[in-house]
């Protein structure tokens, strides 16, 4: 009998740009990499609801309140798409939640920064969702089928997130001098943390090599970061704002791209290892929400059990 080399089959599929599906054979490290990446992504969506949810009751108008509610609800939905995509690789939802709540699992460093003013909420929609979309557009072509399909849905839904953020930012930048200053301060606070969202530089990125080789990611951290800066600079100029925190930022005519300074990677490492401004607060909020939902889960489980018994008896 002919022995089929499963690893060769897997490699051949990747070479032909075919998707890997849950029941297909895959190398153990590919599975592990995906579980880590997709669960982190899911956690980021859920934790990302906190800094914005904080402003729902304080949104400056009814319009901005319904928009923010819709956006936060979308983020919850995105978390759910991603959790089931990760579950298709053999990890349970309970395990992932437990890893998040104990601090074992990571989520995007950006959500450990506070939202001090309404302009910060606008900056998150514009810059943070903008950076996330750039990453997610690439991930639509990721080699793992369920991840790729979740990304297609998410990108479709998120295009409004960035636009509403920029609209709110525009309102402030063209408002009173005080509003414009708030917009500028928010940009100052969120510029470098947003650049950190793409992850460490390629030269120091521990997970990038395999991710690109396996076509989980199609572009590197530095490539995406550069594209984000190129796309965002004209948007900043339109608002009449500047980046005073980076004196190196300038259009490079020869390279047809912006030169810019790297974010502070020491700070990045501090934030992802638990020492950012809001890490403790975020984890506390997640743990409390989970604990407060305990009775709901218990009641639902008891109800489901009774239904099953009734069905069997009938």
């Amino acid at each position: 009998m002919e022995t089929i080399n499963l690893e060769n089959l897997f490699e051949a599929k990747l070479a032909k740009n075919e998707m890997i599906e849950p029941k297909d054979w895959m190398p153990e490290n590919y599975r592990k990499h995906l579980i880590r990446q997709i669960s982190q992504h899911a956690h980021s969506e859920i934790v990302g609801m906190l800094p914005e949810g904080n402003w729902i009751t304080r949104a400056p108008s009814l319009r901005s309140k319904i928009v923010l509610l819709a956006k936060v609800q979308d983020e919850g939905g995105h978390g759910l798409y991603l959790y089931t995509a990760a579950e298709s690789l053999g990890i349970s939802r309970d395990q992932m939640l437990s890893d998040l709540h104990t601090g074992k699992a990571k989520y995007s460093s950006i959500f450990n920064y506070p939202t001090l003013t309404w302009a910060d909420v606008a900056a998150i929609g514009w810059l943070v969702d903008g950076a996330a979309i750039m990453n997610q557009v690439m991930l639509q072509r990721s080699s793992y089928g369920p991840y790729s399909r979740a990304m297609v849905r998410i990108c479709k839904e998120e295009s409004f997130h960035q636009r509403q953020g920029y609209e709110a930012m525009t309102t402030m930048a063209f408002g009173s001098a005080e509003q414009k200053q708030m917009a500028q301060d928010a940009l100052n606070r969120f510029w470098f943390p947003t650049l950190m969202m793409f992850g460490p530089p390629d030269s120091e990125s521990p997970n990038s090599d395999n991710a690109v080789k396996w076509k989980i990611k199609r572009e590197t951290n530095d490539e995406l970061r550069q594209r984000f800066v190129n796309q965002t600079m004209p948007q900043i100029e339109y608002l009449g704002l500047v980046i005073p925190t980076d004196s190196n930022i300038v259009w490079n005519e020869q390279k047809q791209t912006y030169d810019f300074s790297e974010p502070n990677w020491v700070e990045f490492k501090q934030v992802i290892s638990g020492n950012g401004p809001c890490n403790k607060e975020r984890l506390k909020a997640r743990n409390e929400a989970h604990k407060n939902g305990e009775w709901v889960r218990e009641a639902a489980t008891a109800y489901a059990k009774r239904q099953k018994e009734t069905d069997l008896a009938a």
């Binding site: 819709a70 609800q73 979308d74 939905g77 759910l80 798409y81 089931t84 939802r93 399909r149 979740a150 849905r153 839904e157 639902a300 489980t301 109800y303 489901a304 239904q307």
Partner: peptide, 24 residues
């Protein structure tokens, strides 16, 4: 087919599906 979700019974599955997959 558009995706999947967790729910404890048929009714909850249908309502969750509406909230998760048909908001637009």
């Amino acid at each position: 087919h558009c995706g999947n979700l967790h729910a404890f019974d048929k009714e909850m599955a249908l309502q969750n599906a509406r909230d998760l997959y048909t908001r637009r």
